Simulated scan of single mutants.
Amino acid sequence: MKIVIAGGSGFVGQKLTDTLLNEGHEIIILSRKDSKIDGNIKYVKWLQEDTYPENEIISADAFVNLAGVSINEGRWTAEHRKQIYASRMEATDELLRIISALQTKPAVLVNASAIGIYPTSEDNVYTEESLDYADDFLGQTVTDWEKKAVSVESEGIRVAFMRFGVILGIDGGALPLMVLPYKLFAGGPVGTGNQWVSWVHIEDVAHAIAFTLSNPQVYGPVNVTSPFPKRMKYFGKTIGSVLHRPHWIPVPSFIMKIVLGKKSSLVLEGQHVLPEKLLNNGFKFHFPTLESALNDLYKKDV
């Protein structure tokens, strides 16, 4: 397939690009830098004045939208939250414009999303059938993002929303910060420890997107999380076990709120989310258990 990726230089985008290239697909990455061809990847300039990416794309089988300011970087100041929200709306608007301008439409748009659309809870279990949505900053951002992207269905294009959980990788995401205290022999329970961590290995994220691109029966919300989410206290103990470090120094909630501000909700609160749609359609996780995921990521450190 000929696949256009917005946000291809990011944490997920780089892994996805490598995965799709290995599968033999043709890749076009929308970039703010000048258009060029680098090996098997074509970079096309976008989101700049007087740029018309559709003239260089001409046609494509699929679009993947991963564009947006990272929620993991920096404190959630009012300005940063505005950037997180606006960057997603702006990029999606432009992507929809490009698709509309193409004479030959893609078959599918896979749009990034997040399990933050679900309310935090220590008791509820969320699947793609769940319609209880959060009304906080992250919940509203994700809801508006999905509502904007789904409009492309009017052009006969299949749309899938990849609701990412906590993505585990050593080159980005939340895991390096979560692991750092353990490497310093200062790891321990965070907050109450009862909050859920619905996690997923970065490799499974890339393969889940590739799977969705190739399977027309997969559409709408798609939870991209391991089948076995864990509570934070178990998550921390497993990090300690894999790295052969103690799990003993508690980190009170008020400390996390001082250090991270409003972003502390990402580690102090959580959702118990299950990937029913992927499992029901035959997707196989490479790293279904937390132990297997962490051992793979930190095999060089142990």
Rank of each mutant, 00 (worst) to 15 (best):
F254K: 12
K262E: 15
P250Q: 11
I202Q: 04
A210F: 11
S292E: 15
L274T: 13
L260K: 13
H244E: 04
K262M: 04
Q217F: 06
L180C: 05
K230N: 13
F287G: 04
F283N: 07
P250N: 11
G240T: 08
D204T: 03
M232D: 03
K277I: 01
L278W: 01
K237D: 05
G173P: 06
F228Y: 15
K277R: 15
P216L: 11
I258R: 15
T289K: 10
P288E: 14
F211L: 13
L260P: 08
L278A: 06
L294K: 09
Q195I: 01
G240S: 12
N194W: 00
H207A: 06
P250M: 12
F235V: 03
K230Y: 09
E203A: 10
G193Y: 02
A206F: 01
E269N: 10
P227S: 08
G188Y: 10
K284A: 13
L290M: 10
W196K: 04
F228R: 03
V205C: 07
G270S: 10
I239S: 06
S292P: 12
V200M: 00
N281S: 14
Q271F: 10
S226C: 08
A208T: 06
I255W: 12
I239E: 06
H272P: 00
T212V: 15
P221R: 10
V179E: 02
L260S: 10
P216H: 10
K257F: 06
K230R: 14
A293K: 00
L243G: 11
R245Y: 11
I258Y: 11
A206C: 03
A206N: 01
G270K: 07
K257H: 08
N223A: 12
P288F: 10
S198M: 06
V259S: 06
D204W: 02
V197E: 01
E269I: 02
A208H: 07
G282V: 04
Y182Q: 07
I202V: 11
F283A: 09
F228I: 05
R231A: 00
P216N: 12
H207G: 03
V242D: 00
H272M: 04
N194P: 00
L177T: 14
P181G: 04
P221E: 11
